[in-house]
Every structure is written in C-alpha cells, then in structure tokens.
C-alpha cells in the first residue's frame, strides 16, 4: 500500500483540487450564464479568453501566471501589499493554476446545460408571481444541476491531473505543490523508485474513477426528481 509520504501526496492533491473547484465553480457559473444568456459588446472576446487555457500549452499558462502573480507582477504585488501573502511556491498557487486550467471545461459543461433550458419556463414562473431571482433559483438552477455536477467532476479530474501550469508557476515543492502528477514525474527521475511510481499512478487512476462514479451518482440523484 501507499507509504505515509505517498498518502500525504494524495491528501495534498485532493486539497488542491477541491480548493481549485470551490474557487472556480462560482466564476465558471457566472461566465457560463453570461455567455449563454446575454448579448453584450466583447462577448466573443470573453468567450475566447475563457477558452484560452484549453488551447494554450499549459506551460505558457503557468508562465503567464508567474508573470502576473510573481514578486514583480501586478497581482503578486497586490496580494503582498493587501494580505502580506504570496501564491508563489504555495499550494494555494497550485490550486489557482489547477482552477484556471479547469475553468474552460467547467464553463462549457454549465453553458451547455443552461442553453438547453427553455427560457420560456422562467417566463412562466414570472407570470405565476416569481421575481427574476426566485425564477432563477427555483427553475433555472435546478434544471442546470446535471450540468453543474458534470462541471464539478470534469474540473476536479482536470485539477487532479494538472501538471504543466503548476510546475511552471509554483515549482515542485514537496508537501506544498508536489501533487500526484508532479510526484510521479519526480519519482520517475529517481533510479529504483518504480514501485512508488506504480503506486502513485494507481492512486491517480482510483481517484479519477471515484470522481467519475460520484458524478454519475450525483447526476442520477439530481435527475431522479426530474424523471419521476
């Protein structure tokens, strides 16, 4: 089985992925809603920007994060001045990198589910006495739940596998930014660590499969009230 150090790597990976999703989900939902429902100046540009992490080499995304959040970057200086903190070499930075890499996938999944919702149902809710906010909360949001569930799992799986942007942005620091993919990569550089590589790889597969199963379960559980 896994050694304590390897368990710690699994724990760190889960922590980073969970933080990435919690950070990204509200932003992804807001972006998906804007792109699905609103027509505004600069929509195409926003759409392109959201998809950028999907098409850029992850190393480039990591480098851009480094430029922005590094000691000399605008974001880095702001964080340092306001909160006296930094994302550099920290697991929070790894979470940010993972979240940004997951964002396009999550926006896509949520946007598809929002676009599939008949807006005339919200109109019907309005005529029955629901304010716009209530119509959103009682009609739109529940109908979008399967898409939100899919987004969470896709994003979570993507975050668990994040490598290029993470290692570029926050480096490969043991117990801080060395998540499963980075640990596997590191172990591969060490002669005689093949057993560790195998165990960590199996842990990766198990985690990803578990995420998939949970999503299926969530979608079915959420879907039950729709179907029956």
């Amino acid at each position: 089985m896994l050694s304590p150090a390897e368990w710690a790597i699994v724990g760190l990976s889960l922590k980073v992925a969970a933080a990435a999703i919690i950070l990204t989900l509200p932003i992804a939902f807001a972006l998906a809603w804007l792109l699905a429902r609103k027509r505004f100046y600069g929509r195409m540009l926003l759409d392109t920007l959201v998809h950028l992490p999907l098409v850029l080499p992850p190393v480039v995304t990591g480098w851009l994060l480094l430029l922005f959040f590094g000691a000399g970057g605008w974001g880095g200086r702001t964080l340092s001045a306001l909160f006296g903190t930094t994302l550099m070499f920290r697991w929070t930075g790894a979470a940010l990198a993972a979240g940004i890499m997951a964002l396009p996938l999550m926006v896509r999944a949520i946007r598809l589910s929002l676009e599939a919702i008949d807006t005339r149902l919200e109109t019907a809710a309005r005529t029955l006495g629901a304010s716009p906010v209530r119509a959103f909360a009682t009609i739109t949001l529940p109908l979008a739940l399967p898409g939100i569930g899919a987004a969470v799992v896709l994003g979570f799986a993507r975050s668990l596998g994040e490598f290029g942007a993470t290692i570029t942005f926050v480096s490969n620091v043991p117990d801080e930014t060395r998540t499963l993919p980075l640990a596997i990569y590191t172990a591969l550089q060490v002669p005689g660590a093949e057993a560790s590589v195998t165990r960590l790889a199996i842990a990766s597969v198990v985690l990803s499969l578990a995420a998939l199963l949970v999503s299926e379960w969530l979608v079915r559980k959420g879907g039950r009230s729709h179907v029956l």
């Binding site: 005339r120 149902l121 019907a124 809710a125 005529t127 009609i139 529940p142 109908l143």
Partner: peptide
C-alpha cells in the same frame, strides 16, 4: 397565463 405549449416545470 395558460400558455399554448403548457410550459409545466419538468423538474
């Protein structure tokens, strides 16, 4: 409002 297409809430 009784809509032509019903518009019952499917969920």
């Amino acid at each position: 409002y009784v809509f032509q297409d019903g518009r019952l809430f499917p969920h």
